[in-house]
Each structure stands twice: as C-alpha cells, then as structure tokens.
Write a protein that binds this DNA or RNA. Structure first.
Length: 509
RNA sequence: GGCCCGGUCGUCUAGUGGUUAGGAUGCCGCCCUUUCAAGGCGGAGGUCGCGGGUUCAAGUCCCGUCCGGGCUACCA
C-alpha cells in the first residue's frame, strides 16, 4: 500500500516551528516512499479562526520547499480539504449518526456551568477530572427526545468503553497502553454543529486513506479516544507516529516567549529556507553516521520514520546560525545578488527590522541603503557580496557588512582613526597611493592593488605589511576589520579609493 | 490529584551487551594571515538522571526511584 500522509494545521495563528517540523517529517516520509503528501486545514474552531492564516501556512511551507499533492488549493480525489467545507458537505453528520445508531455515541445537554461545577467537584474530591458518565451517558431515549424537543443546545459525545485496555501502537514509542476507565467521553460534535478534532481528524484520516498519523506527542494522551473511535467504526487505524515537539531553552514547549518562532520571522531575519529545513530536520531525527549538511533531496533519500527520536529537542539558534552561514558561503555571486536583492527589497523584511525590539539596531537602515545601492549598481553589489560572503551569517548581515562599499564617505570609527591614522607615515602613504592610482581606467586588479601597497612598504623601509595595510584599510573603510585589503581595494576601484584617500588626508593630525 | 511520555558533554545527536562513550555546534588555544572571518589542527566539556538487580561484561536488558514535560475544553 502506498504511503499517504497529511499535515493538518489549524488556522488559529501564524505557523510556528512546531507545525513546520511536523510538516517536514510528513513531507520527507511521503517523498521518500514515493507516496502522497496531503495538506488538510482543520478549521473547526470558529472562535479561534484567524483570517489570512491559512495563506501564511501554505506560503510558509512552500518557502521551505515543502509542497503537497492534495490540498485545498490544488484539489485532489479526497476533497474537500478544509474541514469546514467537509462539514457543510454533511460528511461528519453521516458518520456520527452511525455511531449514534449503534450506541457508540450519545447526546448530552449539560450546560457549560454544569460542566464547570462537575469539574470543580471532581478536583476537590481528588477524582479524575472529566466527563465519565454525567447525566446523559445512560439517559433514556425519551429524556434525549424531550431535551431535543425543548430546543436545548446539545453535543454528541463518544461513549468510551469501561474496563478495557486501549492500545496505541506508536512507531516511535512502541506499544502505549491505557486503561479505558481513565479516559472520559470526548465531545464529537459541538453545540454549533462543528466536529471536534477528535472526530473530524480521525474520520478524515480514514476517508482520505491516511497510512501514518504523524503529529506531536501532546496528542498521545488522547490517542485512546482515537483508537476507540476506529474500533467503534470497525476501521483499521493508521500507524501512529508521535513526534517530540521542539522545546525552548528552558525545556518548555516553544512559544512566543522564546522569541521568534513564527516561520516567516526566520525568513525576515535573513535565514535561508534550505538551512532552516536542514536544521529543523535534524532535531529529533538523525541520518546516522556523521552527516549534517544535507539538501532536501538528500534528506528525502535518507529519511526513515523509525529513526525518530522520542526525547524532546531544544531549538539552538546558534547552531542554526552556523548552518545558515555555511549555506551562504556556498552561494555564487549571482545567486547572492538575487537572494540579497529580494531580501533587502522585501517590505515584510523592512517591517520586521522596524519592530520595536529591532528598531534600535542599525540593520534596518543598512538594509534600506543596500537595497538602493543594489539597484543603482548591481555589478558592484555582486562583487561586494562575494567580498563579505565569508563574514556573514544571515542575509540581514550584508547591509552592515558591505555598506562601506557604497557610501560616498565611509563612517570613520574614532578608535580606528586614533590607532592607525596617527602613524607617522600615514600622510606619505595616502599621498603616494592616491597619486599611483591615477589612471583613465577605473578598474584595478587585486594583484595590482597588492603590488601598489607592497611597493610602498618596500620603498619606505617598512618590512612588515601591517603598518601599511591597517592605515589604508581605515582610510578606505573607516574600520579596522573587514575583507582582505587587496580584494576590497579592487572592488572599490581607483576613483573611489582616490576620493577616500583625499578624505583621509584631511583627517590627519 | 489522575493518566501518559521522556532523561547520553551547555545544545543537536551517534550508539540496539564488550568502543579510550564518537560527531556537530558553542567555548578556549594554535596554525594560516594585512584585520575580522572562513578554513585546518588541537583542547576543555559526559560518574550515559539516580539506586538496585540480570550478566564474565550494561548507556544498551529488568525493577524501583527522582526530575522534566504533555494532557486532563463544546482548542487544536
């Protein structure tokens, strides 16, 4: 039987790392087994529905390189793929009626207040909390008819068996057993007529012929409800795969408190999708051996569900940064130009860096300058990107890393000026170089730059290169750190260098 | 409280009865060198949560215990 897996997010908030990871595992599993990847939107909660969220979910997944064969936007033979639409189509009503008819489900008309009271009572009496019988589990047909006739709002609950062992066969954790007496009767259909997750997801998984339910461990406690549902219907349950969710550094479930966990925030922060995907795939799964840097194709090729780790994983942003830098270094000048261009010109990226928590950083303005410079002189920009490629970690770093290339006058770091523009030979050095640089041609090779600097040193009895290199670097970039001097000089060109030397001469004591 | 899941360097992990417990990241040092990176090399960092067993031999199997986490909604 061919593998069919689904990622089933609910549009209740911006998609975060957790859903991304689950989706990635679904995707890798589907592609590895040449099976089918399905996207299903679980929009059964009308109160928490967030408009636009579904679009962001799809955009986030696609950004990462995850696509699907069946889904609300692409259709498929098992549609519709939105649960609200499936509800409208009457799908859940048919199946819950079957359960009602066969005595596996029942109507319950408790008010929210009554339920709250029940829970309080159970808590103070140290009893298991939940709907274990209530007044409606064994109510007579006449009572139910009367309640329905009176127009009382009611829900349909699943009648859990008593005195039974319920087994969830989990691919990651093995056999997980539950005493059915410890699990209460879950609501299947809410008073507004919408199905709950417990009901809709299981019915859909069966109807859509899902072979593996890959979901977060937080679902494992409700697994007995799900396996019972399958048994009540007489269906064979899919393979359960409960993957550990990603935790924050404090060991707690990753949330807003841990900073940016929204998938698109990583995009806005300048991470490459291939780096994020590679990194996230390695939390809770390892290909064996020492492999770490892996393309999506390599991940697909190596991925196996039974390599999944049962223990929780902590999201280590430092390692992500390393990996992102690694991917950045592997990019050609051409693709750097394309990626940095798209990034620095993205209004969402600008908005990200303009947020309160980032507004004080120089990153936003630097990116804006870069975007402008890039459209003015793409060829120069490309050279600049290659120049600093080894020194950046994210796309966002390019702005500050190469701003000195584009500005008319570099911003002079006072400490740098104090240290290197005060050397005795500075004046002579800048005058000589500026004079030597004069030529009708603006371009100059790296080798020529090196010859220029070296010959000055030799001609003036300076045996080490440092005392010459450092003042030149400060004159040209305003800083003491940066790319190799000769490379940087070549990128700048003769005209810019002459201007900057003249500018530096005015700063000399 | 009840039920369930988890526990190998700070972090991600390899490991399926016999390894000096390996790799990666981060940290430190050295090399390279015009700085910073990158890269190369090396180092520190783990009584495999703890305690008992089983075994000639246990991170690996069994029991207990502690700690962490999840669920306990007409949310997913």
């Amino acid at each position: 039987m061919s593998v069919r897996v689904r990622v089933a997010p609910s549009p209740t908030g911006a998609p975060h790392l957790g859903i991304l990871r689950t989706a990635l595992f679904d995707f890798l599993c589907a592609r590895h087994h040449r099976g089918t990847m399905i996207l299903r939107i679980e929009d059964t909660d009308r109160n928490r529905f967030v408009p636009g969220c579904e679009e962001e979910i799809m955009a986030s997944l696609r950004w990462l390189g995850i696509d699907w064969d069946e889904g609300p936007d692409v259709g498929g033979p098992f549609g519709p793929y939105r649960q609200s639409e499936r509800k409208e189509a009457g799908i859940y009503a048919i199946w819950v009626q079957k359960l009602l008819d066969e005595g596996y489900a029942y109507w319950a008309f408790d008010t929210p207040e009554e339920l709250e009271e029940m829970r309080e009572y159970q808590q103070v009496n140290r009893q298991p909390v939940g709907y274990f019988g209530g007044t409606w589990r064994d109510a007579s047909g006449a009572q139910v008819e009367a309640a329905r006739a009176s127009g009382k709002p009611g829900v349909i609950r699943l009648k859990m068996p008593r005195g039974r062992l319920l087994v969830c066969d989990d691919l990651v954790r093995g056999r997980v057993e539950f005493d059915s007496d410890t699990v209460d009767d879950p609501v299947l259909i809410k008073a507004d007529g919408m199905p709950t997750y417990h009901f809709a997801a299981m019915v859909d998984d069966h109807l859509m012929e899902i072979t593996h339910i890959i979901r977060g461990v937080e679902w494992i406690s409700s697994a007995p409800k799900h396996v019972w549902l399958f048994e009540a219907f007489g269906w064979t349950p899919p393979q359960f795969v409960h993957v550990q969710v990603i935790n924050g550094p404090d060991g707690k479930k990753l949330s807003k408190r841990h900073g940016d966990t929204r998938v698109f925030d990583f995009k806005y922060a300048g991470f490459l999708p291939e780096a994020l995907a590679n990194f996230v795939a390695l939390i809770g799964w390892a290909p064996g051996g020492d492999r770490e840097i892996m393309s999506m194709d390599e991940l697909v090729e190596a991925f196996e569900l039974d390599g999944l780790q049962p223990s929780p994983g902590v999201f280590d942003i430092e390692k992500l940064r390393w990996m992102n830098g690694h991917y950045l270094r592997g990019l050609s000048g051409e693709s750097l130009l394309e990626k940095v261009g798209a990034y620095s010109g993205d209004p969402d990226v600008r908005a990200f860096w303009a947020r309160d928590e980032h507004a004080a950083l120089p990153t936003g303005p630097a990116l804006a300058d870069l975007s402008r410079a890039l459209t003015l002189d793409p060829a120069l920009a490309e050279e600049a990107f290659v120049l600093v490629r080894e020194r950046v970690v994210t796309l966002a770093d390019f702005g500050e890393a190469c701003d000195f290339v584009f500005v008319d006058r570099p911003v002079m770091d006072p400490a740098a000026v104090g240290k290197w523009l005060t050397v005795p030979h500075a004046r002579r050095l800048f005058e000589c170089l500026a004079a030597d640089l004069v030529s009708p041609e603006d371009a100059i090779s790296v080798e020529a730059c090196e010859r220029l600097v070296r010959s000055f040193a030799e001609g003036h009895g300076i045996d080490k290169l440092g005392p010459v290199v450092h003042p030149v670097r400060v004159a040209l970039t305003g800083r003491t750190v940066g790319p190799g001097l000769f490379e940087l000089m070549s990128v700048l060109g003769r005209r810019r260098m002459i201007e900057r030397f003249e500018n530096a001469l005015r700063l000399l004591p």
